[in-house]
Amino acid sequence: MDVFMKGLSKAKEGVVAAAEKTKQGVAEAAGKTKEGVLYVGSKTKEGVVHGVATVAEKTKEQVTNVGGAVVTGVTAVAQKTVEGAGSIAAATGFVKKDQLGKNEEGAPQEGILEDMPVDPDNEAYEMPSEEGYQDYEPEA
C-alpha cells in the first residue's frame, strides 16, 4: 500500500510541476504579447503594419512553449490582441483601416495563427491545408 501511495504522490508532483510550467509559459506569452502591443503603439504610420505582424510573430513563438489545451486559448487571445492593436492603430490615425491585415508588401496577414497546427491532446499534428499553395516548377 505504501508503494501505491508513494507512486500516487510522485504522479501528483509531476502534474503540479507540469501545471506550473504551463502557467509560466502562458505568463511569458502574455508578456511578449504586451511587449508587441507597446511596440505597435510606438510606431509611426509606416511601421504600424509591420508592428502588428511582430506582435503576432512574438506571440506565436511563445505559444510553442505552452502545451496542451492552453495553446488553443493563448492563440485565440493573441489573435484578438493583434486585431485590437490594429483597431487602436486605425482609431489613433497611425494607419488607414484599409491597410490593416496586410503586410508591407500588401499581402493579407489573416491566418497567421489560424494555420498553425495545434492539437490540445498532444496526440497528432496535421499540416495546414494546401489550398493556398501553388506547385513550383523550376525553369529549365
Rank of each mutant, 00 (worst) to 15 (best):
V37S: 01
E131K: 07
K45Y: 04
Y125D: 11
E131Q: 07
A69W: 14
V95T: 08
Q109R: 10
V40A: 05
S9A: 03
K10C: 02
S87H: 12
V82H: 03
F94M: 02
K6E: 02
S9V: 12
A124G: 06
E137S: 11
V70C: 04
T64L: 10
A91T: 05
E126A: 15
E130R: 04
E105V: 09
G84K: 11
V37C: 08
G84M: 15
P120G: 10
V74K: 01
E104I: 05
K60F: 13
V55K: 04
V63L: 10
K58W: 11
M1W: 00
E123W: 11
A90C: 15
Q62I: 08
A27V: 07
P117A: 05
G132N: 11
V63C: 06
V16E: 04
G25P: 00
G132A: 13
E105G: 07
T75D: 04
T33K: 00
E137P: 04
E28D: 05
I112R: 08
G106E: 07
K58V: 09
T72F: 13
M116R: 05
G111M: 15
F4P: 00
K60I: 11
G73P: 02
E13C: 05
Y39A: 03
T81S: 05
E104Q: 07
A89K: 03
V15F: 02
E57F: 10
T59K: 01
T59S: 04
K23W: 15
T92D: 03
A124N: 04
G51P: 01
T44R: 01
A69G: 05
D2A: 01
V49G: 04
S9N: 15
G93C: 03
G31K: 11
A85N: 02
G31I: 05
L100D: 11
E57G: 03
V16P: 00
T64E: 06
Y125T: 07
E35F: 15
T54S: 13
V37H: 00
V63Q: 01
G31W: 12
D98T: 15
E57Q: 05
V70E: 01
E130F: 11
G31Q: 14
K32T: 02
K23A: 03
A56N: 02
K43Y: 14
E20C: 13
G25K: 13
G41D: 00
G73V: 13
T44A: 10
P117N: 12
G14Y: 12
D2L: 15
T81L: 09
Q62T: 08
K60H: 05
G14K: 13
V48M: 15
S42C: 08
Q109W: 15
E110C: 07
V55G: 01
A107P: 07
K21N: 03
G25V: 13
K21Q: 05
A140C: 15
E139L: 05
T59F: 15
T33P: 00
A17I: 05
Y125A: 03
E20D: 06
A140H: 06
A53R: 04
G41N: 03
E131I: 10
T92W: 15
K102I: 10
S87L: 12
H50P: 01
G111Q: 11
N122L: 08
A11W: 15
E105D: 10
A124L: 04
G84V: 14
L113E: 12
V82P: 02
T75N: 08
A11H: 00
V70N: 01
E105L: 08
K23F: 15
A76E: 06
K97F: 13
E13P: 01
D135A: 03
V77G: 03
A78S: 03
V26H: 00
K80S: 07
V52I: 08
G132T: 13
A30D: 00
V48R: 01
G132F: 13
S9E: 14
T22R: 01
G31P: 00
H50S: 10
V26T: 01
N103K: 14
Q62D: 01
V118L: 09
E20K: 02
T33F: 15
E83N: 12
V70M: 11
E139H: 08
Q109T: 10
Q79V: 06
A19L: 15
A76W: 14
G84W: 08
L113N: 01
Q79M: 08
E110K: 05
A30W: 06
E28G: 03
K10D: 01
F94V: 03
V95C: 12
E46H: 06
A18N: 00
K45M: 15
G132W: 07
A30K: 02
V16I: 14
V48H: 00
E110S: 07
S129W: 05
G101D: 12
H50V: 03
E20M: 10
K97T: 11
G68N: 15
G68L: 13
A30P: 00
S129R: 04
K45F: 12
A17S: 11
I88G: 04
S129N: 04
E83G: 06
Q109C: 07
L38M: 13
A76L: 10
T92M: 04
K97G: 09
G67V: 10
M127S: 04
